[in-house]
Nucleic acid binder design. Structure first.
Lengths: 152, 152
DNA sequence: TCCACTTATATAGCTTGCTATCTAATATTG
DNA sequence: CAATATTAGATAGCAAGCTATATAAGTGGA
């Protein structure tokens, strides 16, 4: 019945499935970040968008979509909430009537230091007890796994 | 203005934030798993519950909650969908009227082989190009990070 | 026994993600 | 130039996560 050799087969249990562990870890990260940035009036979904815009304002929705790797519909909804919450405004593109550019409000600009510090704390807590070498190994493995799951 | 020394400070950019990378990786895992198990009529949220029940049937909602690390409300909703979709049934506890035990339907029992194989394929694709040693390192680092974020 | 905790589950309401589909505007091509 | 493609964005509807709160059933002590 079994197709592969017992020698090479990986026993599938929840706790040793990378996918399961990754999902759990991501939820723990999100909970921790949520707790840190809630006092600033921010939430986890808006955070990557803010990071992208703090780096370069005036991007289009399409640019944010490709940069952050979420679906267009997800981004549209997230931007709507951010506009509602006074984090961004949208301006018409001068040459293309389909396009809108996204700009930070003063409030959002003022949150950069506090927000990145909060996220840095979460990262540090997550990486506590790891040597700098291990932390770099972890980051490198993350990149490779992301690369593997990204092609096609 | 900056509190910490420039020598030890970690420049906070999206692509080098562990939290950001972990979130991205988890979404890629979920997309891949979703594609694999959709033909079986399963979805990502039901999957961990099925794994727990394939291991031991008849658990209570509370047991599943502590075992899988989701909130009670999340589990209640997930179990409702699973009941609706004919994956589980619930029976009253013989001694405690507050408690229900959760049981797999015949359909759910029959899906174990195909579903774990599908998840195994996703894991293998994600880990492609990693040596067995690297794969173990990754798993060990995942556990440590999960541990760090779990206390308190 | 009765009142106050605790425990198990459900529900309301929100965010963040997805797929699928719609509209409007621009580009392309016969 | 008209017909067709593509592209940007919005919207509908669902899954899966969360917090907060409600309800019902057990437990324990005065």
């Amino acid at each position: 019945m079994r197709q592969t050799s017992p020698m090479t087969e990986r026993d599938f249990t929840r706790t040793c499935s990378e996918g399961y562990q990754v999902n759990l870890m991501a939820r723990l990260f999100a909970r921790a970040l949520q707790a840190q940035i809630k006092p600033l009036g921010l939430s986890t979904g808006t955070f990557p968008v803010l990071l992208a815009l703090w780096e370069r304002e005036g991007q289009t929705q399409r640019e944010l979509v490709t940069e952050l790797g979420v679906e267009q519909a997800t981004m549209a909804n997230t931007l709507s909430r951010m506009e509602r919450d006074g984090l961004i405004t949208r301006r018409a593109h001068e040459a293309d009537a389909r396009v809108q550019t996204v700009w930070l409000t003063e409030r959002a600009k003022g949150l950069e230091q506090a927000a990145t510090a909060a996220a840095g704390e979460v990262n540090d807590r997550a990486m506590a007890g790891l040597t700098e070498q291990e932390r770099q190994t972890f980051a490198a493995l993350l990149s490779r796994v992301i690369g593997n799951l990204s092609d096609h």
